[in-house]
């Protein structure tokens, strides 16, 4: 019974994936091209940067990078809090 349910679920999900793959747009032709053209064409004159990915990361989507850095900072704060040294003043383990 469990096996039949698993096979059924697998087939249904597989059918949806095949459907999505058939209806996929051709590679390199997105539905909206304005933003791509803007980034590719203007990252050199605006930012004087050759690497468009870095221009997007640190200039056009800078707030997102700020969030990433803050997440890393808070992760370190959490690790330091959880794994702090738990010792009494006498130096014995609690």
């Amino acid at each position: 019974m469990k096996k039949a349910i698993a096979i059924l679920a697998f087939l249904i999900i597989f059918a949806f994936l095949i459907l999505g793959a058939v209806e996929m747009r051709p590679f390199g032709e997105p539905e909206q091209e304005d933003m791509d053209d803007y980034f590719l064409g203007d990252s050199q004159p605006h930012n004087q940067v050759n690497n468009v990915v870095t221009a997007v990361l640190f200039d056009y989507r800078g707030l997102d990078t700020l969030g990433e850095a803050t997440i890393l900072f808070s992760a370190v704060v959490g690790v330091l809090t959880v794994l702090r040294e738990t010792q009494k003043k006498g130096g014995e383990d609690v």
């Binding site: 004087q48 940067v49 050759n50 640190f58 990078t65 850095a69 890393l72």
Partner: peptide, 20 residues
């Protein structure tokens, strides 16, 4: 020597990530 603040921000993020 190009990039403006992008280069400086790369440096700042590099310092932060390596230490973290």
């Amino acid at each position: 020597n190009t990039g403006g603040t992008v280069t400086l921000m790369n440096l700042a993020v590099g310092i932060e990530v390596s230490a973290a």
